[in-house]
Design a protein around this nucleic acid. Structure first.
Lengths: 247, 247
DNA sequence: TCCTAACTCAGTACGGCGTACGGGATTGAG
DNA sequence: CTCAATCCCGTACGCCGTACTGAGTTAGGA
């Protein structure tokens, strides 16, 4: 049961591709392509059209080769996505290189990843089942180094890294989904409320959703509070409290 | 650009379906089906085979009707998923009905949703672009009510609800992805390390990933710390700190 | 030098998907 | 009774990932 977007099937082969531990072939014709060119082309397509707009045929067309030629370099689409993810993880500033306290480093990490996910929105729609490549590992390592100054036990450092990363991804996805909904329906939030507001009002004015109604009347939905920053500060506050407790 | 899994196209129609504001037809043959039966069948399939295993043909087969008959009741697959999401959101305990402080209510909410997402894993793989239905709205309302006792300003209550919900979803997704990776490759984490460990060791023993290496040697990866609970407590601690600051 | 194993390249084809279209059957309103 | 509204659904189209197959190319070993 349950495969959804699925990850790669043949893990051994994928690991070799990710970590570049496969030796070059000796015999046979000179390859006209290489894995990197395929991955680069695929990333360009995904940046423009999303993961759903990425197909093997489109990648091949962009590179001017037959579709099936790609399979000489990459076992299947899932493995290609694994490579795309790791490649893109090679971008950007590593948080542990930023000056300042663990908190400053972590804030930098969060904001960096936030804009990073907005630059490659498709990453948020990829399955979480892809194996770790070297660049992803490098980012993870950097995150752990950023949190080392907390002085927390190692297992709590790992837990905090997981929690912060999950938070960033989740909020970025929320933001991206929101933007894409406006873009794909061509309906702005204002237009939407103008159209469906009256029907919802019927429900809101009843006692079915009292808290939503109260919060709505208080104007909280149009508040310019930045949820991402707000929640980030709450999490960092919580970690600081933990440090004090243990210290 | 960018559509990926996409949400519904015709929002007006979808809203009518979600909020059941379409009147019954008068003329024409008696319908053999209704929206609820279609949605129920689709949920059963998705629970068993994931979103990728859900197809209009399979839903129709399960109901013993022609594929295209479904389109009499539902405009398209995206709208069906919207209905599935809202239907499933009708399950479970609403957090504001739980006894105790806002913190107790929120913990209950988090743990409830955690097991909820593990019961319907496909929800985590659905696009976030589906419009709100009544059951989802009800859960949101309940979340806001749970946080009302914090005494925080309304806009911060909304922000906290967003943050907590995002955190729960994100951690649940991480957990589900992990489980599914084991299930789909048939390779347990132990087996995986036995197979790829040696290759990774080569990298780990170098100075490329010092923090990962240190944390690994400390046994933090095999620690039985519960990241979900740990992070939840950090977030709730952070909110408590905020309450004290403002109070 | 030549043979042949190893390798690249890609056309064809298969089974799956969502769904547009159109036609036949059925019903209640006028 | 008529006819518009509505249901049911077979057929077909254009996508998708990729298995299979075979033709062409290269370099190592004899």
């Amino acid at each position: 049961m349950t495969q959804d977007n699925e990850g790669p099937r043949d893990l051994t082969r994928t690991m070799r591709l990710l970590w570049r531990t496969d030796g070059a072939a000796t015999r046979g014709p000179k390859p006209a392509l290489d894995v990197d060119r395929i991955v680069t082309a695929a990333i360009e397509i995904a940046d423009a059209d999303g993961l759903a707009g990425l197909s093997m045929r489109k990648v091949a067309d962009r590179l001017g080769v037959g579709t099936m030629s790609l399979y000489t370099y990459v076992p299947a689409k899932a493995e290609l996505v694994s490579l795309m993810l790791d490649t893109v993880d090679g971008e950007g500033v590593l948080p542990h290189t930023v000056a300042g306290s663990w908190r400053a480093k972590t804030e930098s990490w969060a904001r960096e990843d936030w804009s990073f996910y907005h630059r490659h929105e498709w990453m948020l729609h990829a399955s979480g089942r892809h194996p770790l490549g070297p660049n992803t590992m490098r980012r993870f390592d950097s995150a752990l180094r950023s949190l080392a100054d907390t002085g927390l036990p190692e297992d709590e450092i790992v837990a905090n890294a997981d929690v912060i990363d999950t938070y960033i991804r989740g909020m970025a996805r929320r933001s991206v989904d929101f933007r894409q909904r406006e873009a794909s329906t061509g309906v702005s939030e204002d237009q939407w409320w103008a159209e469906h507001g009256p029907m919802l009002e019927t429900h809101l004015t009843g006692d079915r959703f009292p808290a939503v109604r109260r919060v709505h009347d208080a104007g909280a939905f149009t508040s310019d509070i930045d949820s991402f920053e707000y929640g980030l500060q709450r999490i960092l506050d919580g970690i600081e409290g933990r440090i004090r407790t243990l210290g």
